[in-house]
Design a protein around this nucleic acid. Sequence first.
DNA 1: TAGATTGTTAATCGATTAACAATC
DNA 2: TAGATTGTTAATCGATTAACAATC
Lengths: 203, 203
Amino acid sequence: MTKDIPEISLQRLPVYLNYLKSLPEGDKYISSGAIAAALGMGEVLVRKDLAYTSSSGRPKVGYVRTELIAAIEEYLGCDKKKTAVLVGVGGLGSALLGYGGFGKYGIDIVEAYDNDPAKVGTQVGGRPVLDDCAMAEGIGRCGAVLAILAVPAQAAQTVCDQLVKAGIKGVLNFVPVQLKAPESVVVRNIDVAASLAILASLL
Amino acid sequence: MTKDIPEISLQRLPVYLNYLKSLPEGDKYISSGAIAAALGMGEVLVRKDLAYTSSSGRPKVGYVRTELIAAIEEYLGCDKKKTAVLVGVGGLGSALLGYGGFGKYGIDIVEAYDNDPAKVGTQVGGRPVLDDCAMAEGIGRCGAVLAILAVPAQAAQTVCDQLVKAGIKGVLNFVPVQLKAPESVVVRNIDVAASLAILASLL
DNA sequence: TAGATTGTTAATCGATTAACAATC
DNA sequence: TAGATTGTTAATCGATTAACAATC
């Protein structure tokens, strides 16, 4: 499935999805105008975004809420089960292992790795914590293509290289470091501190 | 300080900052071309972004690394101490309380709130956890203008309303819910699960 | 001076919005 | 039918890139 959706539109799909799911079961139809008003955006933009998911509405009535949810979920691949691993079972890593929110997108974090002997062998969030050394083997075994990176900064690039070598195709990087990876590997960064700093500078 | 920088440029400033700080102390000068190459972007864009911070380079030699760092830090307001509070001391909230990365942007999370009696009165990450009821008083007392929201979804809007009423001007929202807040309050969302799902859908 | 790099102005590109025809 | 809403095409807006003059 090659997507020609702009990434910025893609980023809005989960927002629509959350909103649509939050509506009362009784609401059968929803219009692009109503969605736009609720989310504070333009209604044409909403229709354009939704059109990418190949959902379609009916003039005069709007979209069938459940169909729209199904179309977005299908487009995002929520129905396809995907396996992820997590590296770095510190505070943030542990929190993410305990976070149940990935499931609704079809993503399961199946195991985690850390180099701290005190953590290796334990379970966090119901997932086994294995030794770093077992990473390549583990990724191969569970067929993970996604990885969450939450290690200390000085280890980030090394671990990233290992992940790539082990066959990981997408890395969600929480470390405030610019990772170098092959073009074929998608890296996206979340820098929580920077996000708060940017927010502060807007005040 | 009214900024007319595009938010997208603003978002790149911490990236430059991290990169510049990671360079060896011995590097006195750095060119926009070198920064661009390291971060995989266009060099004109780098110069434009840096120009917003009123830093300036010298033709032929580039920018003085330390000056550039200082200019970005000043532009982002890292020198100005800002107080933040956190609401919702669950897994993610606890992790953020223990995360030291906010300090480099001049942000200090001074206290946290939760409605779980078992948590109230404890310390997490060296910060006191107070009862939700003490939120308005606490925010007033410590003069916080920033808040991190990490509560369960069904509580998010209610807590947000309380934060706004208590004088919070910026909310970093980790809850996958579209918050309604006055125009004067800046809300930015981080949806970790959605970010990973988007990443997965790009593969 | 010659060459490298900055900073600015103009051109391009892509995303959003406006206008409007289609349709239920 | 009339009115509301979709979906598409054209216009606008903003961000990125290209071209180039300035300058050290």
